[in-house]
Amino acid sequence: MSNRITKEQVEHVASLAKLELSEKQLPYFTDQLSNIMGLFESFEEVDTSDIEPTFNVTDQINTMREDVADNWNEKESLLQNAPDVADDLIRTPTIIDESED
């Protein structure tokens, strides 16, 4: 199979998407993505030089609404879904790794 995407590229794309791949997963995903990208080679047959791209197919253009805040009073249910809560706030680890200070 031709290498349409390299391991390095897959690693880079994974990091952009906030994913990490193990040593074992990297060649597996690289092969599969490379294989899938073979599909896109058929694009070369199609001349689209005068064709406008389509990004959506809705018949609604620029729907506007009043910009007003709305309180749903759902704080408790929302916090019940949070993995870690302290003092009615969602808790996360620190941005900087404290263990390396």
Binding site: F43, V46, T48, I51, E52, P53, T54, F55, V57
Partner: peptide, 10 residues
């Protein structure tokens, strides 16, 4: 390119 092909399909 894919979005242009989408137009051709339409």
């Amino acid at each position: 390119k894919a979005a242009e092909i989408r137009t051709l399909i339409i």
